[in-house]
Amino acid sequence: MEQEVIDSEMVLPTHLSFKKIQMYEKYPKGQARGRHWKHLKQIIQAENYQNYPADEPNYVNIESPPSMHPRKQICDITGYEAPYSDPRTHLRYANTEVFKVIRSLPNEYVQRYLALRNAAVVLK
């Protein structure tokens, strides 16, 4: 390894004397890398919050409800207020110039703009 890399000590040593169990003992090489860690969704499911009283705070029931404010729609490209929506691409737009732009956009970009507000077509 290069001297400057060693000097900077950026690489974590594999053996650390203060640990009771070393990393390589816990996750031996050759076996499927690590374990499968439950994602948040799975963790929440395993918590079985439905078995506990509803007024007890938990990770799920402290979430904010949907907004009650009137929602204003903004132009996907410029951020201006968007009174219009393009039926073909489903993008929102502010004026004719932006409309010209969105009609000339390749589909990939349209999908990326839609993905920004979680409205893209997801193929499974």
């Binding site: 979430e63 907004s67 404010h69 929602r71 920004l116 507000r117």
Partner: peptide, 12 residues
């Protein structure tokens, strides 16, 4: 303040 701009349907 308006998470719905990025598709998150929750209060700001």
């Amino acid at each position: 303040f308006r998470p719905n701009l990025v598709g998150i349907e929750q209060a700001g």
